[in-house]
Amino acid sequence: MSDMFDAKIALFHRHADSRDEALKMLAEEFMKSGVAKETFFDGILNREKVFPTGLTLNNMCVAIPHTDPEHVNRTQIGFMSLDTPVEFIEMGSDDTKIQVTMLFMLALKEAHQQMDMLMKLMDVFQNDELMERFKAVDNYEEYMGLIKEAGLDLEG
């Protein structure tokens, strides 16, 4: 079992012209680091088109793009914040458009294994103050500090 953040996939205050461009920027980091296979981006994009992953929180919208385990080598979480939002569709809807400013991309190898971490992540999404700090963070050290503070640095 390894750390879900050790590939250090975190991009701060980026700009993307579209959802697909944002997904590509982040997914490429997963593929470059070997955490995910070369099919990962296509898997992410196809899933997002059929079953969108946007979530509306209290003060902002985020997305949790992920795809089938067959595109993944090992479990890992990647982060990207955007200075200008991109449009996602809300999870569970067919056409509710939301403006997403942060992506928490998940490379998940199997079910159950990461249950505690996923539960914690959903709790963090309900913590408005912490989410504002995730949005503001601009360097890796500070980001990992937030991950630890949020209790997300669990063994995978």
Partner: peptide, 10 residues
């Protein structure tokens, strides 16, 4: 869920 590993786990 869509993949059977993420949101269904939560």
């Amino acid at each position: 869920c869509a993949t059977g590993v993420a949101t269904s786990t939560v």
